[in-house]
Measured scan of single mutants.
Amino acid sequence: MTYKLILNGKTLKGETTTEAVDAATAEKVFKQYANDNGSDGEWTYDDATKTFTVTE
């Protein structure tokens, strides 16, 4: 399945997607991506749209 990440950071904004077997796997990928790019904030997940959002 395709999962989407929306970044609403102070310095990093945008979207990216990943293919993953489940939401937990996608979350690990996205959290590593956000960490690698210095983005940290409040995470939410919408199962209906398969979208993670991180807001700083």
Rank of each mutant, 00 (worst) to 15 (best):
M1P: 10
M1L: 12
M1I: 14
M1G: 10
M1H: 14
T2I: 14
T2G: 04
Y3L: 02
Y3Q: 03
K4L: 07
K4G: 03
K4A: 03
L5D: 03
L5W: 02
L5F: 05
I6C: 07
I6T: 03
I6E: 03
L7D: 01
L7W: 12
L7M: 12
L7K: 01
L7C: 11
L7P: 01
N8K: 11
N8R: 10
N8M: 14
N8W: 12
N8L: 13
G9V: 09
G9Q: 05
G9P: 03
G9A: 06
G9C: 15
G9D: 04
K10D: 07
K10V: 13
K10E: 09
K10F: 11
K10R: 12
T11E: 09
T11Y: 13
L12H: 13
L12T: 12
L12V: 13
L12P: 06
K13W: 11
K13F: 10
K13P: 05
K13V: 09
K13I: 10
G14I: 15
G14Q: 13
G14W: 15
G14N: 09
E15G: 08
E15A: 09
E15V: 13
E15Y: 13
E15F: 14
E15T: 12
T16P: 02
T16R: 12
T16S: 07
T16M: 15
T17S: 10
T17L: 07
T17D: 04
T17G: 03
T17V: 08
T18W: 06
T18D: 01
T18G: 02
T18E: 03
T18V: 14
E19P: 04
E19V: 15
A20G: 03
A20E: 03
A20P: 01
V21Y: 11
V21P: 15
V21M: 12
D22T: 04
D22A: 03
D22H: 02
D22G: 03
A23Y: 13
A23D: 04
A24P: 07
A24N: 07
A24C: 14
A24K: 10
T25R: 05
T25M: 11
T25N: 06
T25V: 07
A26H: 00
A26M: 01
A26Y: 00
E27H: 11
E27Q: 10
E27Y: 15
E27V: 05
K28A: 12
K28Y: 07
K28H: 07
V29I: 14
V29F: 15
V29T: 10
V29E: 06
F30N: 00
F30K: 00
K31E: 03
K31V: 06
K31A: 05
Q32W: 05
Q32K: 13
Q32H: 06
Y33L: 06
Y33K: 02
Y33F: 12
Y33I: 07
Y33E: 02
Y33H: 04
Y33Q: 03
A34W: 13
A34D: 01
A34C: 14
N35H: 14
N35C: 12
N35P: 03
N35T: 12
N35E: 14
N35Q: 15
D36M: 12
D36V: 11
D36N: 09
D36Q: 12
D36E: 13
N37I: 15
N37E: 07
N37A: 12
N37F: 15
G38T: 05
G38I: 13
G38C: 10
G38V: 07
G38W: 12
G38N: 10
G38K: 07
S39K: 09
S39M: 15
D40I: 14
D40H: 13
D40R: 12
G41M: 11
G41H: 06
G41K: 04
G41N: 06
G41V: 05
E42I: 14
E42D: 11
E42A: 09
W43H: 00
W43G: 00
W43I: 03
W43A: 01
T44V: 09
Y45G: 00
Y45V: 00
Y45H: 00
Y45D: 00
Y45T: 00
Y45W: 03
Y45E: 00
D46G: 00
D46W: 02
D46A: 03
D46Y: 03
D47C: 06
D47P: 14
D47A: 14
D47Y: 07
A48T: 11
A48G: 07
A48Q: 10
A48D: 10
A48E: 12
T49L: 06
K50N: 07
K50H: 11
K50T: 02
K50E: 02
K50M: 08
K50C: 05
T51M: 03
T51A: 03
T51K: 02
T51W: 01
F52C: 00
F52I: 01
F52S: 01
F52W: 06
T53Y: 12
T53S: 05
T53D: 02
V54S: 02
V54L: 13
T55V: 08
E56A: 10
E56K: 06
E56G: 07
